[in-house]
Write a protein that binds this DNA or RNA. Structure first.
Lengths: 229, 229
DNA sequence: GAAAAAGGGGAGGGGCCCCTCATGTTTCCG
DNA sequence: CGGAAACATGAGGGGCCCCTCCCCTTTTTC
């Protein structure tokens, strides 16, 4: 039987399992944080998160000493989904389809989740345990772009860096429209991929915003400015 | 000589000219606010604005009782420029050029100015004196789109509401990149107009971000999350 | 140049939030 | 079952910000 050697240079210590109540509270906190980040972005109030979870603020800090710890715990799975999509995309026969699949999956993850949009547009600090995943996704993204260009399905003069435009812009459009037309970001993505130009018309995937929807989607002034009595 | 009639139902009261010191302070405050809004968006701290202007917070509130008052005073001119661009665009012979001119001017106004980006994506309350200008710009935008579609230079299946995508997305891209490559938003705008698709290649207007620039442009984690000691 | 009017100052109340820590409670394990 | 270890609690110090209000200073006006 293997004698557990007095951890010479082990990485994470054995990590004894959590107490039952602690595990339950941790899950509750994660659920509350997921909601809060989705609705308000990565800057959501941690005191509100704790309150929504029905727990004290000190409990939150015991489980997640820094905001980054909480962010990583909340988004580890979504980042994993994105990574798997990149792995699938990079081996697709149709490289254009792979390119679109990579981007569309990412945007689906972003849609309705300001937190993930923020994370996707945020360079994680090297110390973050999720930084590795982010880096690998980035590398796969480069390959996806290169393959599509080698096969001539993607403009030769775009670069992998241009992909960031998609992250930023769809994140913003989705943020603005999610409450009023949660799928309309696809229209934006499609326009970004196909272009506004007349001719060669592939029909757009979802209907446009109606004027009323647009009105609702524009940032409510009260959110940004003091009321005007 | 015209007898000033005891203002029967006049609109704004005669509005006596400001005292000299008051006018000077007002200008100083506007300059400080312009900087603060440009750098931090419409949510910039008013206490900081006053401090930057070297004036007391009470003075700021005397001149601009609400944040909206200050916002309108700061951005009235930019909104005017946008409006004039729309007027020019709507009568251009080449309707596609008009469409592009309208959007590009707007994006130039947005670039490097988070405040104006926010304002462009914000529905002003009816009471705001700038709301009329915003509405007229919106109407001109509709005409610009319709003309381009009648002339067959713009996809028939886009709507005036889709123009909001440009406002939101260029605003976000510009915000992310302004410190590192302040012109690269043009590349995004161009891609949005022309499309990522291979073939029919019009060269892109400015170079892509380098990987290093991209790294710098991604939101600094410290801005969003607590430090990780 | 003195009174009236306009403007400027800034302390302070209230709110929200971050994060810590001393104290009290639950779980686990022998 | 009993005690040690793990965990939960929430008041409280510190920070930033919004906005008000009363009193003092400057400008204008006659």
């Amino acid at each position: 039987m293997d004698i557990d050697p007095p951890s010479v240079t082990a990485g994470p210590p054995p990590a004894r399992p959590l107490r039952r109540d602690a595990q339950r509270n941790r899950d509750t906190l994660l659920a509350a944080a997921r909601r809060a980040f989705a609705e308000e972005g990565l800057g959501a109030s941690l005191e509100q998160v704790a309150k929504q979870a029905g727990l004290a603020i000190g409990t939150l800090y015991r489980h997640f000493p820094t905001r980054l710890d909480l962010v990583q715990a909340v988004f580890a799975d979504k980042l994993g989904v994105w990574y798997e999509a990149a792995e699938r995309a990079v081996v697709m026969d149709d490289t254009w389809e792979g390119f679109c699949f990579f981007l569309e999956t990412m945007c689906e993850l972003q849609s309705g989740d300001r937190g993930f949009s923020g994370l996707a547009g945020t360079r994680l600090p090297e110390v973050a345990c999720l930084a590795g995943t982010q880096t690998r996704i980035h590398e796969l993204g480069i390959r996806i772009v290169e393959r599509a260009q080698e096969q001539g399905t993607l403009r030769p003069d775009v670069t992998p860096e241009d992909v960031a435009f998609v992250i930023w812009s769809v994140g913003r459009v989705s943020e603005a429209t999610q409450d009023v037309a949660p799928e309309v970001w696809r229209r934006h993505l499609y326009l970004l991929l196909e272009g506004f130009r007349a001719g060669r018309v592939h029909p757009l995937p979802v209907p446009s915003l109606t004027p009323e929807q647009l009105y609702e989607a524009m940032a409510r002034p009260g959110d940004l400015m003091g009321r005007t009595p």
